[in-house]
């Protein structure tokens, strides 16, 4: 068995990579992929802890999170499509209608 701490460390690192991707990239699609990666790393911690304590609640939780992530991708990509239709760009720096 793998020690649970290693898996928690791995998912902390993956979460950070996703966060840096959100901060550093300007392409809305890649930012969105980074958010998916962050969700996935949290799922990994839940599965690891379900494995650690011999309890399936964590896995049920991950199942619900996956359903929510699927909905989020569908709606988010539709929003990106709408932005592209209006502004013809996926660069989030050019979407500044609300900027004061």
């Amino acid at each position: 068995m793998i020690p649970t701490t290693y898996i928690l460390l791995l998912s902390a690192i993956i979460f950070t990579i996703g966060a840096v991707g959100v901060l550093a990239r300007r392409n809305a699609l890649i930012i969105f992929m980074s958010i998916e990666m962050m969700l996935n790393s949290v799922n990994l911690t839940l599965v690891a802890l379900a494995n650690q304590w011999g309890n399936l609640t964590g896995q049920v939780f991950v199942f619900i999170v996956i359903a929510v992530a699927a909905v989020e991708v569908a709606v988010g990509l539709a929003i990106i499509m709408a932005i592209v239709r209006h502004k013809d760009t996926t660069n989030i720096d050019e979407v500044h209608l609300l900027k004061g």
Partner: peptide, 19 residues
């Protein structure tokens, strides 16, 4: 995060494995 993980949970027992 590494500080939190390394500090709080170093003493996990052997994983039980999901039922």
């Amino acid at each position: 995060m590494l500080f939190a993980v390394g500090r709080g949970v170093t003493a996990f027992p052997e994983p039980a494995g999901a039922p």
